[in-house]
Amino acid sequence: MKSILVLGGTGTTGRRIARRLSADGLPVRTASRTGGDVRFDLDDPTTWGPALDGAAAMYLLEPALRPGVDRRNRIPRLVSEAVAAGVTRLVLLSAYGVGGADDSHPLKSAERAVRGSGVDWTILQPDWFAQNFSESFWLPDVRSGTLAAPTGDGRTPFVDAEDIAAVAAAALTEDRHHGRTYQLTGPAALSFGEALDVIADATGRTLRHLDVPAAAFADRMTEEGVPAAAARLLTGLLVDVREGRGATVSDGVRQALGRPARSFEQFVGEAAAAGHWA
């Protein structure tokens, strides 16, 4: 039986997609550099063929930035190999705002490759994940009580990864999403300070957002081992929040699923109950 291949299958979105597909009784395989059902490494094309074998649909994404890696050609090459191997449906996790980025943005070439693949495709462009507060980048800062970021009072509509997974699972299994690009956001834009207030109310913790200069933030990241190029990219995205870019709320979740996006308050309530900030 043909299967659905989920790249990054142990990550924030991948494991949620796989869980949904498995719950529906669908044949799904997770792939990642570590863990998952099959090993897959975008830096190692020898791992691609075994992972693609028997796959009819694939969820694909670019992993975290690593030094010395040119990301511009990896997804296009993978798309070509996937189609040649028999994959007939592609769902790409891109990022909010890629449509307005210049051609040097690595996800631009990924989107072009998927759109030009000759098979069914869907592109997801999510905003900042709400789970960054509970599972990823900002969790250590939240636990410490102070989240330092160069965002000022700028707002952004954090999107719940559960919504991203729900849209991805639908796109992997339903014909009606072919040729669609969904901008995925939460239902309301919040500042980092406001987001921390919601978490504080749910957990009883004392939390604050500390606005810091962009250069100092980038320097701190590089001191912690983040590659300089990645530090500059992330800092620039946070400065965009400060300057009001990317604050627009989209109805992509409703377009794809016929229901509103989950609120940040819903996400926080569930994350708090699960003990993420304990």
Score class of each variant (00 low, 15 high):
165 A>E: 02
98 V>M: 04
76 P>M: 07
67 P>S: 09
149 A>C: 09
149 A>W: 03
121 W>L: 01
97 G>V: 10
168 A>M: 08
185 T>D: 03
157 P>F: 12
184 L>T: 15
86 G>Y: 08
103 D>N: 03
155 R>H: 06
89 R>Q: 09
78 L>F: 15
52 L>T: 06
173 T>H: 09
53 D>Y: 00
168 A>T: 15
150 P>D: 05
41 D>T: 13
73 N>P: 00
94 S>W: 08
73 N>Y: 00
78 L>A: 06
83 V>R: 13
63 P>E: 05
49 G>C: 01
167 V>I: 11
180 R>D: 09
148 A>F: 01
138 W>V: 04
118 G>C: 02
139 L>V: 10
90 L>K: 11
54 G>D: 05
127 D>Q: 14
152 G>I: 09
53 D>T: 15
132 N>K: 01
142 V>L: 04
73 N>G: 13
144 S>N: 11
99 G>P: 05
58 M>I: 13
77 R>I: 00
55 A>L: 04
88 T>Q: 15
117 S>C: 07
174 E>S: 13
76 P>C: 05
169 A>T: 14
150 P>Q: 09
176 R>L: 01
162 E>W: 06
62 E>Y: 02
158 F>N: 08
51 A>G: 07
95 A>G: 14
112 R>N: 02
125 Q>I: 03
44 D>R: 14
122 T>S: 07
183 Q>M: 07
45 P>M: 11
50 P>C: 09
65 L>S: 10
126 P>H: 02
91 V>A: 06
143 R>P: 10
174 E>Y: 05
87 V>H: 07
82 A>H: 10
124 L>I: 11
91 V>I: 11
109 S>V: 01
164 I>G: 04
124 L>M: 11
185 T>P: 09
81 E>L: 07
110 A>D: 00
128 W>F: 10
69 V>H: 13
99 G>L: 03
118 G>E: 01
48 W>S: 08
70 D>R: 13
